[in-house]
Design a binder for these strands. Sequence first.
DNA 1: CCGGCTTCTGAAACCGGTTTCAGGATAGCG
DNA 2: CGCTATCCTGAAACCGGTTTCAGAAGCCGG
Lengths: 339, 339
Amino acid sequence: MWYGTGMKNVTIEDIARVAGVSKSTVSRVLNHTAVVAPEKRKAVIEATERLGFSPNVVARSLASGRSMTVGVLTQLIGSPFYDAISQGVIAGLGYSDYSPIFADGQWQETKQIDAIGALVGRRVDGMVLIGGGVPSDEISRQCSGLPTVIVARNLPSDRHHCIYMDNVSGGYLATRYLLQQGHRQIAIIRGLEHHPDAVDRFAGYQQAFNEAGLTPDPRLIVDGDFSAESGIRAVNELLSRDLAFTAIFAANDLSAFGARLALDQRGMQVPRDVSLIGFDDQLESAYVTPPLTTVRQPAREMGRQASEAILNLIEGGEFSTQAVQGELIIRQSVAPPLR
Amino acid sequence: MWYGTGMKNVTIEDIARVAGVSKSTVSRVLNHTAVVAPEKRKAVIEATERLGFSPNVVARSLASGRSMTVGVLTQLIGSPFYDAISQGVIAGLGYSDYSPIFADGQWQETKQIDAIGALVGRRVDGMVLIGGGVPSDEISRQCSGLPTVIVARNLPSDRHHCIYMDNVSGGYLATRYLLQQGHRQIAIIRGLEHHPDAVDRFAGYQQAFNEAGLTPDPRLIVDGDFSAESGIRAVNELLSRDLAFTAIFAANDLSAFGARLALDQRGMQVPRDVSLIGFDDQLESAYVTPPLTTVRQPAREMGRQASEAILNLIEGGEFSTQAVQGELIIRQSVAPPLR
DNA sequence: CCGGCTTCTGAAACCGGTTTCAGGATAGCG
DNA sequence: CGCTATCCTGAAACCGGTTTCAGAAGCCGG
């Protein structure tokens, strides 16, 4: 078996022979790891180019102890938000000498633990964990001594480096905006019951109400699971309960889409009859009708930040947990209530 | 530096010592590569578990010549279609012992060539090329002797293994459906001018007209670039030209969303005033208002198929280029024309 | 009871680099 | 001019596995 651009497989030894020097010297030239006499350096470089040599990364990894790879644990459920983070990581690593290796957690804790194990076994030099629910101490155990960044999740222990979205303030922002527009009966479609993001956004919702000296109507709180279907179900449930509401705060844009569709099917217009606000600001949200007002999560940027953080940690740098703030993106799905 | 679950770093040599056998025997037990006396086997397995040994994949790769990785070249532009293919590849590889390594081509030929080179340098055992525009013979050159699958692109040479969507028949399907519904003035928003997918879909559009003994109105053909913005621009252009049309075939769902929005802003309803059909069937398409009729491209499945194909090729199996057919997904954005 | 064949096993070579170490050449200094 | 400090360089060890090879042990039939 052979690879590479050309023939057999040219090794550092071949270069050494052709250039009339030793392996060591070739290595030194290639890595700029020591001063080498100019004429030898030249000979090595020429030989390298003539034979079309590209060093065997695997051998190099073994010898140097660094694999030049970063393990990325995804959850792969096809959520636009998490996917965008992965993309950001890939993009951010694109400018470095490190390559990302992916493993798929499938939102199952055991799978995630296995996947982390597989990545560790591959001797990745750093680890980026996107979302997921692996317990803190399990992470510590498996990734001890290994630079690790956790994205889109906030682990309280300061052993961990996290880049997460401040979901409380995000939920607060969305709700306060609706309140400012004059809404009082604001339904909320929550995300997965125990999902920390969902819990936090809900906390923000309550906080905005509290701050305004109001109390949300508990009957307007319905559960969902971040899917578009759950948005449909939630609206149907609200309408079947025959409750009055003038606005909906959806757990994420996808469920907002579902909610929008369900409202439309019942003949209710957004924002005339009901205002609607989402969470995420995914690509499509600016182009649905009406363009969706939402809280922007800079997913791609978070991924990119994570890649920078991990590179920095690998180089021995420092990093401390960062919360990124959501941004209210005002479009056209919210209007003051009619009356 | 040390990794792993526990202490220093336990190697096969440690296991050998503890189990009272030689390295060779440990290797044989771990890889089931030869028969070993039951009691020694047991000793090895026990030692392995007790010390929490996980083999160094890098060393194994170097020795065996197989890196147990598959290189994936993406284009990372955030296109829902291409992204979904990547996800499919990750998912498909999840069940194997191979891990995907990503490199980002950024839709630039030079970047793509570099990226392929980097992957080859990493001694990947197989390569999955998603989209992109690297010339056929450049691929042959760099990937010679390396199992390679090209997804979402059809290279005529039979040296290559491709999994691609039949865009001609997809475009045909969409257009024929509109014709069947009674539309005659069918505008088309094309994708990027020289993009093969766009060209093919347009060919399908013409084919459907031909087959019906009709000719499309050339003034209803406008260019786009697969973005939502381009959908908006296209509709505005059509309307400003003051042309009569009863239906729009958009290059992809994203540009259909844009078109839908632009129509809405001009007070035109879908499908009452104008019917709209897209291409892709991305996640959100079922939940916009009205739910979008479209041609489904099984992106994720294509990625999964690619991963299966590459694993098969690595094992020495055969694979021949496959065209997957699009499927017309009828929802509610198309209706017969009013008159 | 012995030769031949099979089975198991360990020593050693190997994969392709990096890194240590020691020695030779050269330069600097008194 | 002699002696030490410095600079280059190559030999060899090393990273942690796999695989070859040859020898030891066990089994068989004659």
